[in-house]
């Protein structure tokens, strides 16, 4: 269990790095948005790793069950909200990228920036 806990955390760090790197280093706007999704998904992993209790099960209290250990419900509620926030941001970002493609005929950030500078 201890190893799993640490491994969970290291994977969170790795995904955070990968997603963050994609957002700031990649030029393609859609790649940036994909990186943003990975970045946010890593944070979800952080919260959900917190909710596990050893020997526990999902927090659905069946009537009549006694002496059942349950895992923590609160991080799950927070992440449900965070997932929806993430998809909303992605949807809006994609709509903006579609408009940029139509206005600039490119979705590479450096090319669009060059066109902006010439204006």
């Amino acid at each position: 269990m201890q190893i799993l806990g640490l491994y969970n955390y290291w994977v969170f760090v790795a995904l955070l790095m990968i997603g963050f790197y994609a957002v700031i280093a990649k030029d393609n706007l859609i790649k940036k948005l994909i990186g943003l999704s990975i970045f946010q998904a890593a944070v979800f992993l952080l919260y959900i790793s917190m909710d596990k209790v050893e020997g526990g099960t999902a927090p659905i209290i069946q009537p009549g069950a006694v002496d059942q250990i349950y895992s923590n419900p609160l991080p799950q509620v927070l992440i449900l909200t965070a997932i929806v926030v993430g998809i909303s941001t992605t949807a809006l970002g994609l709509a903006i990228v579609v408009r940029i493609k139509e206005a600039y005929d490119t979705i590479e950030e450096s090319e669009a920036a060059a066109m902006d500078r010439e204006a």
Binding site: K52, G56, P59, Q76, I83
Partner: peptide
């Protein structure tokens, strides 16, 4: 990790 609702979402 026992987060069934989140997994579904």
């Amino acid at each position: 990790l026992d987060a069934a609702d989140v997994a579904l979402t």
